[in-house]
Amino acid sequence: MSSPKEVRQKRASRIRRVVKKVANGRPRLSVHRSSKNIYAQVIDDVEGVTLAAASTLDANLRSSLKTGADVAAAAAVGKLLAERAKAAGVTDVVFDRGSFIYHGRVKAVAEAAREGGLNF
């Protein structure tokens, strides 16, 4: 029987495979959520580099947030990531939710990034 970690990794790789197939050269907006924080980054898979990143651990975000594990914090991360991605010259991305369901904090990051100017 597979462990929960193996099941989560298999699900994430399956989703990532589909995302990379439909990317058409666009960078990937990858989201990871833990029980205490949320992390997001824009990755260029062709070059293998991170173009922009944001998390609730950033110094300027941490001071303004009550906690790093709520929807408001996730929205702030999405907005900050969109600003940094636009500064790096990225406007079109493909959303990679990893092994996480698209609701709650993951959805808040995506919606805030869209409001910030990213297209996906």
Rank of each mutant, 00 (worst) to 15 (best):
M1N: 04
S2M: 15
S3G: 07
S3T: 14
S3P: 00
P4N: 14
K5I: 06
E6H: 03
E6D: 15
E6M: 05
E6N: 05
V7I: 14
R8E: 11
R8I: 08
Q9R: 12
K10I: 01
K10N: 12
K10Y: 06
R11P: 01
R11C: 00
R14D: 02
R14K: 10
I15G: 01
R16G: 03
V18M: 03
V18L: 03
V19A: 09
K20G: 09
K20W: 14
K21A: 09
K21C: 04
V22E: 12
V22S: 14
A23R: 05
A23S: 08
A23K: 01
G25P: 03
G25D: 10
R26F: 04
L29C: 00
V31S: 00
S35A: 08
S35Y: 11
K36R: 10
N37F: 12
Y39P: 01
Y39R: 02
Y39D: 03
V42P: 00
D44E: 06
V46Q: 13
V46M: 05
E47G: 07
V49D: 12
A53I: 06
A54C: 15
S55P: 08
S55G: 10
S55I: 09
T56I: 15
L57T: 10
A59N: 15
N60D: 09
N60L: 12
L61S: 07
S63K: 08
K66N: 09
T67G: 07
T67Q: 13
G68S: 11
A69W: 02
D70S: 12
A72G: 13
A74D: 04
A75N: 13
A75S: 12
V77P: 01
V77I: 11
V77C: 05
V77E: 03
G78L: 03
L80Y: 02
L80T: 10
L81W: 05
L81F: 13
L81H: 08
A82H: 04
A82V: 06
R84G: 03
R84Q: 08
K86E: 08
K86C: 13
A87F: 01
A88T: 04
A88R: 09
G89F: 01
T91Y: 08
T91W: 02
D92A: 10
V93D: 00
V94H: 01
V94L: 04
F95I: 14
D96K: 04
D96S: 11
D96L: 05
R97F: 08
R97Q: 10
G98H: 10
S99I: 00
S99N: 10
F100G: 00
I101N: 15
H103G: 10
H103P: 06
K107W: 04
A108S: 14
A110W: 02
E111R: 15
R114P: 02
E115G: 11
G116H: 06
G116V: 05
G116D: 06
G116A: 11
G117P: 04
G117C: 09
L118F: 07
N119A: 11
N119Q: 13
F120E: 05
